[in-house]
Simulated assay, not measured.
Amino acid sequence: MAEYKQAHIPQRVCVALLAMLASLTGCAKDQSLAPPVNSEQVIVRLKVPSELKAETMKVMYRSTLCTFTDHSAYGEPYQRDGYQHMEIEPAQQGRSDVYEAKLSKDGGGDCQWRLSNVTFGVSYREPERFGDNVRFGAGGGVVVIFDDNASPRGGANIKVDGDLAIKESYYPWVSEAFIGGHRKTINLAGEGDIYWMYKAPEAREVYFEPVLHSRFVVHSEQPKVHKKGLYSSFTYPDGSTVADGHSQPAFRRLETIRLAAEKK
């Protein structure tokens, strides 16, 4: 009898463990995105100049049901909303210069995902036209936030009610760096930072039209050595050179140069 009990103790333990695991599995939620076919849509459209291309859109969904544990700077645990990323390629509309993507507001699934933000923009189609080994750097980006959370790029500094229409000027900016290895990039210099940051919770249509002034190229060279008083120099389309400690071109100066040239 004692031998019988000893032989079956491991089996009873295994049965209990299996039951516990089955219970836990039954409570777990499928965290995959499953947008319903009738979900309300946000349409994002870009009007893309021929020298540029539409970048892959990065879309984030959040859930208050499927949370996870994170830790503060002091190591204290706390719960955060779950999130999912997906990438969408904007589709060219016929043979036009308009590209479009449709984003479901409702991400569906057991977690009841909701659209949180989208990051998109444009870059140079052929950066090598500016020289050998030239790569695209930065600029021409937009972030639109649809809820009360920050995006991976941070929070919004512009709040918009209703739909969102963006039309911004950009200038080609060829930047050359030397410290740490020679690098040359072509960037899109605009009035704002690399990304325009918007909060538009009610938007159902988002339109972005970057206007590229391709004839007005600004060049910059970073110092070749670290030395106090040495700054990046900027050579503007009118031939003037400025080295005043700024890290990017002066947008207003570029606008003034262009407008003066177009009046001639």
Rank of each mutant, 00 (worst) to 15 (best):
V217A: 04
D148P: 04
E205S: 07
K263C: 01
Y124C: 03
L230R: 08
Y236V: 10
D70G: 13
E221N: 15
C27M: 13
G154S: 04
H246T: 15
L46A: 09
V44A: 01
V211R: 08
Y171E: 04
G192C: 01
K47A: 12
T56Y: 04
M20W: 13
G192I: 01
H71M: 06
T241K: 06
N157D: 15
L254M: 12
I88Y: 01
P152E: 10
A34T: 09
Y61P: 00
T185I: 01
D244E: 05
V15P: 00
L33A: 08
K228H: 11
S151C: 07
Y4W: 12
L188Q: 08
H71C: 03
S104P: 10
G180Y: 09
L33Y: 10
K227V: 08
L17C: 14
Q31H: 08
S63F: 03
G155C: 09
I166E: 00
K199Y: 05
Y236Q: 08
P10C: 09
L46R: 07
G140F: 03
T256N: 06
R95E: 15
E202D: 14
Y124A: 04
I257R: 00
H71Q: 09
E176V: 14
G82K: 05
F68Y: 15
D193Q: 12
Q112T: 14
Q31Y: 06
E128V: 11
A101L: 04
F178E: 09
Q93P: 07
